[in-house]
Design a protein around this nucleic acid. Structure first.
Length: 109
DNA sequence: CACCTGACGACCT
DNA sequence: TAGGTCGCCAGGT
């Protein structure tokens, strides 16, 4: 497990419930600051992983649910996060994004 | 093998 | 404030 995708999965699996991080933060943690797009691509492919990948806990840097369309239903991502205590406004902008942000660089080293 | 696309994000008009 | 450009790199055509 040393390819980029696998490394992304490993980090995402470490995100605690009720916490979120961003594509860019994961890419930075893996040493490729500009590869945030690949993190999203990895999430897109995460469904074929045998392990549970909490892809809903990865949002963009503004706390917007840019990946919502890749879930079973357009509201699934928001509902999963609401179940974990995260709050949203009408535009699905996360209200407590800052307090709930989980930075892998800071948390994991 | 060449070209295109994408769940992003930093910069630059 | 809003919109365009560019780097990132795996996979599909």
């Amino acid at each position: 497990m040393s390819d980029f995708f696998s490394q992304v999965y490993e980090v995402v699996k470490l995100i605690p419930p009720g916490r979120v991080t961003s594509y860019g933060a994961i890419a930075a943690y893996l040493g490729s600051p500009g590869a945030s797009r690949m993190v999203g691509w990895a999430m897109n492919a995460s469904h074929h992983s045998a392990d549970f990948i909490p892809a809903h806990r990865v949002v963009n840097r503004n706390g917007l649910l840019t990946g919502k369309h890749h879930f079973d239903t357009p509201d699934a991502m928001r509902e999963l996060l609401e179940n974990e205590g995260l709050l949203f406004d009408e535009d699905e902008r996360m209200l407590n994004f800052k307090e709930r942000f989980w930075n892998p660089v800071k948390e994991l080293g």
